[in-house]
């Protein structure tokens, strides 16, 4: 195994214990006879590995759990409507609109029952306005308030 390959493995798999035992043994053999690679391995351990492995464990302060408890005490708002398959839902809504337009079309285009009803109502109100029904549309008969005028 040459120095380049050894140095490559020293930086990663060797120091991290990820090598197969036979390859690890080959590297150890190489290190025993190569001062350059040995120097790198020592520097690596001292400057890039050991400082982290001596790191103290830290505990989360109590206030963190208090915050979590408060946050999860407020229940999540349940979604009112969940669309599980948006493509199908969209197609269904489009079909519904299409059918509504098709079936409602005759009522709006021809003189169907709705149109006739509207016409009848218009004629009835016009009839009331003429006074022919016996009611007089004069000032004396009204309450005379602004609200009444508004409704008239």
């Amino acid at each position: 195994m040459n120095c380049k390959k050894v140095k490559e493995l020293l930086m990663t798999d060797y120091v991290d214990g990820e090598l197969r035992p036979d390859i690890r043994s080959k590297i150890k053999e190489h290190l025993a006879g190569c001062s350059d690679c040995r120097t790198l391995e020592e520097a690596l351990q001292r400057k890039a590995v050991e400082p982290f492995r001596n790191a103290q464990k830290v505990q989360a302060p109590d206030i963190v759990w208090e915050g979590i408890k408060d946050a999860i005490a407020v229940p999540e708002r349940a979604p009112v409507f969940i669309i599980r398959r948006p493509a199908f839902s969209l197609a269904a809504v489009a079909a519904l609109i299409f059918l509504t337009i098709i079936f409602a079309r005759p009522f709006f285009i021809s003189h169907g029952p709705v149109t006739e009803y509207v016409q009848e109502q218009a004629e009835f109100f016009a009839y009331l306005d003429t006074g022919a029904n016996g009611f007089v549309n004069g000032e004396d008969e009204g309450i005379g308030t602004a609200i009444e005028e508004y409704f008239l």
């Binding site: 930086m11 990663t12 120091v15 520097a43 001292r46 400057k47 890039a48």
Partner: peptide, 13 residues
């Protein structure tokens, strides 16, 4: 990433 990190730490050292 580990290799580059260690190279950086060695350079700093």
């Amino acid at each position: 990433r580990l290799k580059r990190a260690r190279e950086a730490l060695l350079a700093h050292g």
